[in-house]
Amino acid sequence: MFLNHFEYFAPKTPAETLELVSHLGSKAKILAGGTDLLIVMKSKAISPEYLIDINGVEEFKGILCEPGKGAVIGTNTKLAEIQYSEELKAKYPALAYAAGEVGSSQVRHMASLGGNSCNASPAAETPTPLAALGAKVTLESLSGTRELALEDFILGVRKLDLAEGEMLTKFTLPEPAAKSACRYAYMGRRDAMEIDSVNMAVNIELEPDGETIKSLKLVMGSVYPRPLVSKEVPALLTGQKLSAELVEKAAEAAQGEAKPIDDIRASAEYRREIVKVLAQRLLNDTYQAAKGV
């Protein structure tokens, strides 16, 4: 299978990149790892006239994760680096774990964190923990910079809040609160190379008593056109101490919010069952982790 003809650009600096992105507009596509882009180009689903390869731009790569200062991750940081990063594993285990579950080792060495969000696939692995962790994306263009919460950036299947001439440059993660934890889990037919049927991340912060839930965020992937941030689960659990009964209620509430579809990977009915199972497991595990047990 051949790709369509296109013109190839390999800028070296962020300024050159933004110039090209602005100038070439919607006829161009950014090439990061290409693990999504080249597949859709091979199938002729899209045929861009220009590719802007950002792999030569150092400023778009790298992880800055210092004690007490959250983390900043460049858009073109490879998922393998996130998977292996000792700093991220210690501070954001949910993200490092999710990155390590994408595709295969080869895919993870090619694929970027930014590409995983910009691809805007409901089944994507990393947007779910990123949203649960409160990550913000930085969007840049020649005319300026803006910041958005990740869940506001991804609007739907292959739809982003990204204007023409704009690109994603980095992710900013807040420092995790004391007495908090975030965990990620997924279910697919097989472990490797399988796009998830359902994935989920839970972030819990406890009051100083170490038992009462101060705040909670539960995010679901693959059950809605975009990462679905639960409204009902925090409403049920904030201010409470977790009990088996509350876990059951909260898991059912999450199940009610999920709007899964039937597709080749799983039926909607199965997905809804899995939402409940994952929610129960993650609420318990994350609560225990936040308590430091």
């Binding site: 190839y8 693990t35 080249l38 597949i39 390869d53 792999n55 080869q106 090619m110």
Partner: peptide, 26 residues
């Protein structure tokens, strides 16, 4: 030819990558 089987794996700067979804010019 779609990134799924790994038969085309080569090392690029020491890292395993898939040559079937990699542009030569890159």
């Amino acid at each position: 030819g779609e990134g799924d089987c790994g038969a085309c794996t080569v090392l690029i700067d020491g890292k395993p990558e898939l040559s079937c979804i990699k542009l030569a010019i890159a």
